[in-house]
Amino acid sequence: MKEFDKNEGEYEDFGSEPQSRVIVVPGEVVSSEEDFLPGEGARREGKDIVASRYGLAEKVGRVIKIIPFSGAFIPRRNNVIIGRVSDIVHSGWIVDIDYAQNGFLPLMESPRFVNKGEMDQFLAIGDVVAAKVWSVSPKGIDLAMKGKGLGKLEGGFIFRVNPSRVPRIIGREGSMINLIKVNTGCNITIGQNGWIWVKGNSLDSELKARKAIEFIADKVLVTGLTEKTEKWFGENK
């Protein structure tokens, strides 16, 4: 079992700095100390904190949570996602978001007035949108489209990576994605569902951005990934 230094790793910003990181498998006891609380992906069994998922166990303050390595995308409120319109219904659009349920984008979310009879003037079946998860309930997933960078995506192309790699591609406070944007001059939107939209001035720069993202997505546990990506850009000018 490998212990990680608190400054290692390229994961999401968790507010306070994590104290330690350990790889765990489901059913493994993470800590037997009384004063910890189970967070996401962990549970309490007697006095032990036990992992429920496979991933990296992280102690932040008194809470132990598990960051999964892999697996399908599970939508949470406020996730930015990229999806494809799969149907138009009377009060909005049905969006395929690469999850077991479709997302629903209400008509009201359109930034300008859309006539109910001509909804495909704004978003037609097959169009790609960037949206935010507004709510997740057993009845369905509601989407919102009001906000910076959200809306219909035109031009460029989309491709997919494993959703669990998304936090790393974004980097701490967006450091990694900014590095790619600066080096390629591309406009990039990353959906938490692993769909990535790239649009640049030329196809070459777009392909380079995609290669850089796939380079990062290939690595699972790499420390100092930002430096490695800088080096990669140096080698691939």
């Binding site: 998922r53 999964p68 390595f69 892999s70």
Partner: peptide, 11 residues
């Protein structure tokens, strides 16, 4: 199943 990130009691 563990690698797929499914919550599990144990292997």
């Amino acid at each position: 199943l563990a690698q797929a990130g499914i919550p599990m009691k144990n292997l």
